[in-house]
Design a protein around this nucleic acid. Structure first.
Lengths: 153, 153
DNA sequence: CAGTATCCTTGCAGATACTG
DNA sequence: CAGTATCTGCAAGGATACTG
C-alpha cells in the first residue's frame, strides 16, 4: 500500500476511506508510531528525554517494566533511529542509551500530548463522573458498565 | 499514592518542570492516554477531527474497525469527555458523534506527533536499514534477530 | 552489569448473532 | 440504523532461568 500523504492535512471533503495514511494498515509509519505510543515506548522516551541512562538505571526509572520489554522496546526504538545505544566493551559491560535528535523531537511532541492530557484531567474526571452517573440511573437493570467500562489495553 | 512520579523526572536539572505521573502505573491520566493512543482511539479521533459523523459513517471511514471496537472506543472517549454523542430519538435512530473542544485539542497534539513521524519516515527507514545490516553481519552465528525483530506493540 | 531464551497467563480484539 | 452480548484465538507481555 502506498503511504502517501493523501489527505493528511485535514481534508474535510473526502469521505469514503482513510484520510490519514498512518492509519492505513500496512504503513511503516504506523509501526514506528506504535513503538512510540505503545505501552512502554512513551515511558522510555520520556525517561530518556532527561538524559542518558544505562540499562538498569532505565529499568529502575520506568516503573514496572520487565527486562524483556525494556530490551525489546529499546531495540525497536534504536532500530527506528530514535534511540542511540553506546556500548563499551569493558568488564563489567557498560551500555548507555540516549535519544537521537529525531528521538528528541518525537519525545517532545509526545510529551506535549501527555502534558495536555494531564493538565486537563480535571475536565476528564468530571466528564467521567457525569457519564457514570447518567449510566447508573438509566441503565440500572443493565448491570455493570458492559463492554465500555474502560477501553485500555 | 495515585499519581506519584516514578522517578522519571526527579534527578536531572530541569526536573521540576516535568510531571511524569502519567507514567505511574495507577494513574487515571494513563488510562485516558491509552484510549487516545490506542489502536483505534487515534483513528477515531483523527476521523472525527474532520467533522461530525454517524456510527456507520465512522465505521466506513475507519478502515477495519469492528462494530464492537468502534462502540467500545467511542464510549471510552465519550466517558473521557473527548467525544460528544448526540442521539435523536427518531425512527430509525440517528446518532452523531463529534469532538468536544477538549477532544479537538487532544486530536491536534496527537496529529502533530503523527505528522512529525511521517515527515521523518525517510530517516527512520534508513536507520532501520543500517540497523538491520549491522545485525545481519555481526549476528550471523548468534542466531536470528530474537525478540527484537519488530517491537510491534 | 547487560542482556537472551522460554514458558505461560491475560485480556484485546475479531467474528458472529441478536435487540430496539 | 445503532448498537449489545458472547464465545474464542492469539499475541503482547509478565515471570523466571540462564549466559557472556
Amino acid at each position: 500500500m502506498d503511504c502517501e500523504r493523501t489527505g493528511a492535512a485535514s481534508s474535510t471533503a473526502d469521505a469514503e476511506n482513510l484520510a490519514f495514511d498512518v492509519f492505513a494498515r500496512a504503513c511503516p509509519s504506523r509501526g514506528t508510531l506504535e513503538h512510540v505510543t505503545g505501552k512502554w515506548g512513551g515511558l522510555i522516551l520520556g525517561a530518556l528525554h532527561e538524559g542518558s541512562f544505562r540499562f538498569n538505571e532505565l529499568r529502575r526509572r520506568v516503573d514496572g517494566v520487565s527486562e524483556k520489554m525494556l530490551s525489546q522496546t529499546l531495540h525497536a526504538l534504536e532500530r527506528d533511529g530514535l534511540v542511540h545505544r553506546e556500548a563499551q566493551p569493558t568488564n563489567p559491560p557498560r551500555v548507555d542509551y540516549r535519544l537521537t535528535p529525531l528521538g528528541s523531537a518525537v519525545a517532545e511532541r509526545l510529551l506535549a500530548l501527555i502534558y495536555l492530557v494531564e493538565d486537563r484531567m480535571p475536565e476528564v474526571l468530571s466528564a467521567q463522573e457525569r457519564y457514570d452517573t447518567v449510566r447508573a440511573e438509566s441503565g440500572e437493570a443493565a448491570g455493570r458498565a458492559t463492554t465500555a467500562g474502560r477501553g485500555g489495553r
